[in-house]
């Protein structure tokens, strides 16, 4: 059961990481990255590393995408 969960979480991380790379639009990329952060959180959780999971969640799924989105909002305002 644990093996299946770990394999699923690893696949989810791989798929969402590829999704981030294949997205060429920064706005979509920021949202895709938030999903990648969430996948990473699930992987660390099923690998029984809750401390790292918490860090991955707050940084990957919250802090980093938020700053990317706000930066994009600013850059768009400057150029348009």
């Amino acid at each position: 059961m644990t093996d299946v969960l770990q394999a699923l979480a690893t696949l989810l991380v791989a798929a969402s990481a590829v999704g981030v790379v294949l997205n060429r639009d920064p706005l979509r990329q920021a949202v895709a990255f938030a999903f990648f952060g969430l996948a990473l959180f699930l992987l660390f959780l099923v690998l029984q590393a809750p401390d790292v999971a918490l860090s991955a969640m707050v940084v990957g799924a919250f802090a980093y995408p938020m700053m990317t989105l706000l930066t994009l909002a600013k850059v768009k305002d400057r150029s348009g």
Binding site: P50, D51, A53, L54, S55, V58, V59, F62, A63
Partner: peptide, 10 residues
């Protein structure tokens, strides 16, 4: 328990 200043702060 897991967690601490860094995670809780965010």
């Amino acid at each position: 328990t897991p967690g601490g200043g860094f995670q809780g702060g965010v």
